[in-house]
Simulated scan of single mutants.
Amino acid sequence: MDETLGTALHRWRDRLSPADVGLTSRPGRRAVGLRREELAELAGLSVDYVVRLEQGRAKSPSAQVVASLTRALQLQSMERDHAYRLAGLLPPQEGTISTHIPAGVQRMLARLGEFPVGVFSVDWNLLTWTPGWAVLMGDPSASAHNERNLARAVFATGSSGLTSWPVLQDGDALKPALVADLRTALVNYPRDRGLSSLVEELRSASAEFARRWDEGSVGPHVSARKTVVHPQVGEVVCDCDVLTVPGCDIRLVVYTVAAGSADAEKLEFLRVTNGVRADGPTPPGLGLFSTP
């Protein structure tokens, strides 16, 4: 029998365990691998749509849907490309930005769910986030796709970042670093229409971005002290670090607080009240691998 996207999804789903994706395995569980409901939640899709995909009744998933499924299923690059072809789509082409997150990074995130970590593509679109990120910064799943771009949030909308509440930043290292990143990305990914459109949009929408771009603004990412003004606990002072992953162009933005500090107590309170445990796998329902 010829393989279809549905049969491939079922096969890939069967090989993952709940622990692989940060879910708690309940006693008496009989299902092999992930349930359809779990895959749907991880990919940000409806259960009915996943069922129709696997049964072959949904014939034309979008590239965005396929990207979400391949991330949720922790596929390797060749498997990801195979999924695109089975869906009748061209895999991401050379010279365009990849949103693929390596399986090793996804397994790491599943075990770091209590830490606020956001994963961004090279053009600073938020791809996925941990439950800890949603607890501290606000759940991004309610935002539209174009509202999840950090450069757009910082320059075009006047926001302090991809948050539901204010973030007070010390210093001015972020803006030149974002401009430098986009300038480098435009050289590395000349065929990516989304990236070129983003740059043109920001040049038109933000006089500051246009000025920094025309001046050739550059700057490395450095550790920064930021204060999140959370509606439940007030100010939470965090250290923000931007980490890169060798071999791929994704960035991990990680927020941490000093152990034993009042800020650590506030963050722990938010974790507990939102059901994010620091002593075991993160529970479902907090958008660990939400759709972009």
Rank of each mutant, 00 (worst) to 15 (best):
M1P: 14
L5T: 01
T7G: 08
R11V: 08
W12C: 04
R15N: 11
D20Y: 06
G22T: 12
T24I: 15
G28M: 07
R29M: 14
A31P: 09
V32M: 07
E37N: 09
L42V: 08
L42H: 08
G44E: 02
G44Q: 04
L45N: 03
D48H: 09
V50E: 01
R52E: 11
L53A: 04
E54C: 05
G56W: 06
A58G: 11
V66Q: 00
S68W: 03
S68D: 14
T70C: 13
A72F: 04
L75V: 10
S77I: 06
M78D: 13
E79Q: 13
R80N: 02
A83K: 02
Y84A: 00
R85C: 03
G88K: 05
L90P: 02
E94N: 09
H100A: 11
I101C: 05
I101E: 02
P102Q: 06
P102R: 04
A103R: 11
G104M: 07
G104E: 14
Q106T: 10
M108H: 01
R111Y: 07
L112R: 12
P116M: 05
G118S: 06
G118W: 00
V119F: 01
V119E: 00
F120H: 06
S121H: 01
S121W: 02
V122A: 07
V122H: 01
V122F: 07
D123G: 00
W124G: 00
N125F: 00
N125H: 10
N125Q: 14
L127C: 03
W129V: 13
T130Q: 02
A134M: 08
L136T: 07
S141I: 03
A144H: 12
E147H: 13
E147V: 07
R148P: 02
N149K: 12
R152P: 13
R152G: 08
A156H: 11
G158Q: 06
V167A: 13
Q169M: 10
D170L: 09
G171C: 03
A173D: 10
K175A: 09
P176K: 02
V179H: 01
R183G: 03
R183P: 02
R183F: 06
T184W: 05
A185I: 01
V187N: 14
Y189L: 03
Y189I: 03
R193F: 06
G194L: 03
G194S: 05
S196T: 12
S197Y: 05
S206V: 00
A207C: 12
R211D: 15
W213T: 07
W213C: 02
S217N: 01
G219N: 07
G219P: 08
G219T: 08
H221A: 05
V222T: 08
S223K: 07
K226P: 03
V228D: 05
V229D: 12
H230N: 06
P231M: 04
Q232A: 14
C240A: 12
C240F: 10
D241T: 08
V242M: 13
T244V: 12
T244C: 12
V245R: 02
P246C: 06
G247R: 10
D249S: 11
L252Q: 03
Y255F: 15
T256E: 04
A262K: 14
D263E: 12
A264E: 15
E265K: 15
L267K: 05
V272Y: 15
T273D: 10
N274W: 11
N274I: 10
V276H: 07
G280K: 14
G280C: 13
T282Y: 11
T282K: 14
P284H: 06
G285D: 13
G285Q: 10
L288A: 14
S290P: 07
S290Y: 12
S290A: 15
T291M: 15
P292W: 08
